[in-house]
């Protein structure tokens, strides 16, 4: 390679990133449209476009799309995008391939909050938001607990954070087991909530989640370059002038925020947050400036398709989407993992 090629190499990388982003955005749009077509009542693409953009369509189809399928597809997209970007953020932050959005115990805390509401009927709000709000609040209680336990002399070492997360998760999981023991008739509600699903999707939830996800995703993306340097090592980051505590806290809190938002309306959906970032790392490499947006988009696409399957495969019943994400995702990921050659690390 010649020195002159350095510029060309750089330009090539940027155009590739641009191309990847455009393709994924188009795929996402296509996914949304197709997922809207699929269901007990088949509705054509043309009719979908008419309904979305104010053209001719039957009243019943319009209701099915706008009141049932659209909120579900959009909420699914948000949940998938949130879990995937939070997973990528946590993996980079902890420099650990096992990290997922749930690594700090957020999902266990949320499950406890949800079960308080389901079993004891205890919630600070009533009605529609009783469960989501409790799940969300306990997610944040978990984060604050874990963070403060891990804090030593004003510093928060990531390894301690990880261990504190595991311990707190175990604690809340035990409390959830206790709630299950007490649950009686409500047992199936807790169990289904913890498998994760989007059957309760509705516009109100979408509106509740959207601002939090938007803020969280933007914050994570803003700090993507800092995360690159943090992945090389804390010492390197300091030497390159990064404000390490700030960058770390922003990524931690933003990832937790989007995770808590997703979990509060969909339960504990397994696997997406762990695997989608790894899949994307195999395709686009480790640079967070492309990895984070790509994970976000693919997380949304993956979630919408698996949820479409979940609601149609045994119709009129539906499966918890968490089952499908793992059954389909795990073999596909293992296939990718075996296929790559000559690359060490992760």
């Amino acid at each position: 390679m010649e020195a002159a090629d350095i510029g060309a190499l750089h330009t090539k990388k940027l155009s590739l990133w641009f191309l990847i982003t455009v393709i994924l955005v188009l795929l996402l749009l296509g996914t949304v449209i197709l997922a809207l077509c699929i269901g007990p009542v088949g509705i054509s693409v043309g009719e979908i476009v008419n309904i979305l953009f104010g053209g001719e369509a039957s009243w019943s189809h319009r209701t099915i799309i706008l009141e049932i399928r659209l909120p579900r597809v959009l909420l699914g997209g948000l949940v998938g995008a949130s879990l995937a970007i939070a997973g990528a953020g946590m993996q980079g932050l902890f420099r650990n391939p096992m990290a997922s959005p749930y690594v700090l115990g957020i999902s266990s805390g949320a499950a406890f909050g949800a079960s308080l509401s389901i079993v004891l009927g205890f919630s600070i709000v009533s009605g529609l938001f009783a469960v989501p709000v409790m799940a969300f609040i306990f997610s944040f209680i978990t984060l604050v607990l874990v963070y403060n336990i891990a804090k030593v002399n004003g510093r928060v070492p990531v390894d301690t954070l990880l261990l504190a997360g595991i311990a707190i998760a175990a604690f809340f999981t035990a409390l959830v087991s206790f709630m299950k023991y007490l649950a009686g008739e409500q047992l199936s509600s807790i169990v289904f909530w913890m498998m994760g699903g989007l059957w309760d999707a509705r516009w109100e939830f979408f509106v509740f989640v959207l601002p939090m996800v938007a803020i969280g995703v933007v914050l994570i993306l803003v700090f993507s370059r800092d995360l690159n340097v943090l992945m090389i090592g804390e010492e390197h980051a300091v030497n390159l002038g990064i404000n390490v505590p700030l960058a770390r806290n922003v990524i931690l809190v933003a990832s937790s925020l989007v995770t808590a938002a997703a979990v509060s309306v969909s339960g504990v959906i397994a696997f997406v947050g762990l695997i989608v970032p790894h899949m994307m790392r195999l395709f686009v490499g480790p640079d967070n400036r492309i990895l984070l947006p790509a994970s976000c988009l693919v997380g949304a696409i993956f979630m919408i398709w698996t949820d479409t399957l979940a609601r149609t495969i045994i119709a009129p019943e539906e499966l918890p989407v968490g089952i499908i994400t793992a059954i389909l995702g795990a073999p596909f990921f293992l296939y990718l993992l075996k296929r790559r050659k000559g690359v060490t690390g992760w």
């Binding site: 420099r95 690159n228 090389i232 090592g233 390197h236 030497n239 480790p286 060490t344």
Partner: peptide
């Protein structure tokens, strides 16, 4: 620094470019 192990497959150009961060 003493420990310059990079466990992620960043390219050489990516790593040198990080020097421009400050």
């Amino acid at each position: 620094p003493q420990n310059s192990v990079v466990s992620f497959p960043f390219t050489v150009l990516d790593i040198v470019m990080m020097g421009r961060t400050p």
